[in-house]
Design a protein around this nucleic acid. Structure first.
Length: 274
DNA sequence: CGGCGGTCCTGTCAGC
DNA sequence: TGCTGACAGGACCGCC
């Protein structure tokens, strides 16, 4: 899925198009994504004005004028596509279509359907099942070496799995986990609890930096990601290690290695990461 | 509580 | 060209 920088980019793109606008019509085109849609989903959204759009972890959080919040997760393959007009032909994976009061059209497209949408009263948001257990935002100043060391302390799992654990720190997915560990010079296999002190400070800084760089670049993307503004031409990031198995490390020139952790691919340089 | 494996679903690509 | 299996950005859930 889009990781934190991609979700941030989608939020910013959606805000440009939707802030202050009304949803004149919403079409829900199937009964469920990852979860069933809430009851009367489309009718509860029709006529609502968008007051704010923000991000929490990898969730898009849309405040509406009646005190409801539309919660959206893009899953692995979800995207928001904005068009000036509603297209004559929809894609088979366009699951929700929003018609906006200025005539534009926003479609939620998600081939794998690991994404989700829910409607929640603003007062119940913090206690929402999917929100309440989330960890620290990595770009929050409170997320620093000390905070990271405290959350990793005593953990026997590999550090790569730990920094992808949304209960500890949010928004770091499979790509940026590998990238941040390479930047920090830490092996993805290292036991999480041993990342303390200077190492933790370095890793926290590296996580912040890889995320910031990607946000600055407009969000990086892979093949089925479409920016919120609907433009194709998506950004090709030059990863340092991700998806570069066998290619030369940009630091030492040695081959990048791949391994499997928690069922997912990890990429790293065995020379520079310890 | 921590840690691990299974699971949801479709699309794409490498290899035969 | 067609088939098959592996793999793809997530994360919840149940089990030990």
């Amino acid at each position: 899925m889009p990781e934190l920088p991609e979700v941030e980019t989608v939020c910013r793109g959606l805000a440009l198009k939707l802030l202050g606008r009304r949803l004149v019509h919403v079409e829900q085109r199937r009964a469920n994504l990852r979860f069933p849609f809430p009851a009367d989903f489309a009718s509860r959204l029709a006529g609502r004005r968008v007051e704010a759009i923000r991000r929490r972890a990898k969730y898009i959080v849309i405040d509406l004028d009646d005190g409801q919040i539309l919660l959206v997760h893009l899953g692995m393959s979800g995207s928001m596509v904005v068009n000036e007009k509603r297209p004559a032909l929809l894609d088979r994976h366009d699951h929700v279509v929003f018609d906006i009061d200025d005539g534009t059209c926003v479609r939620f497209n998600d081939a794998r359907r690991f994404g989700m949408m829910d409607l929640v009263a603003a007062a119940d948001f913090a206690g929402h099942k999917l929100i309440r257990g989330l960890g620290l935002e990595p770009l929050d100043p409170a997320f620093d070496g000390k905070a990271l060391a405290a959350m990793l302390k005593g953990r026997k799992t590999a550090v790569k799995l730990a920094i992808m654990d949304q209960r500890l720190v949010v928004g770091v997915g499979n790509i940026y986990a590998s990238e941040a560990l390479h930047r920090a010079g830490i092996s993805p296999k290292r036991q999480a609890g041993t990342v303390q002190g200077e190492r933790a400070a370095k890793l926290a800084a590296a996580i912040k930096q890889v995320l910031k760089d990607a946000i600055k670049a407009g969000g990086s993307s892979l093949r089925d990601y479409v920016q919120a503004n609907g433009e194709l031409g998506y950004f090709q990031h030059r990863w340092k290690v991700y998806d570069r198995e066998g290619e030369p490390c940009r630091i030492c020139g040695g081959p990048i290695r791949r391994l499997t952790q928690g069922g997912r691919s990890t990429f790293y340089c065995p020379t520079d990461q310890r």
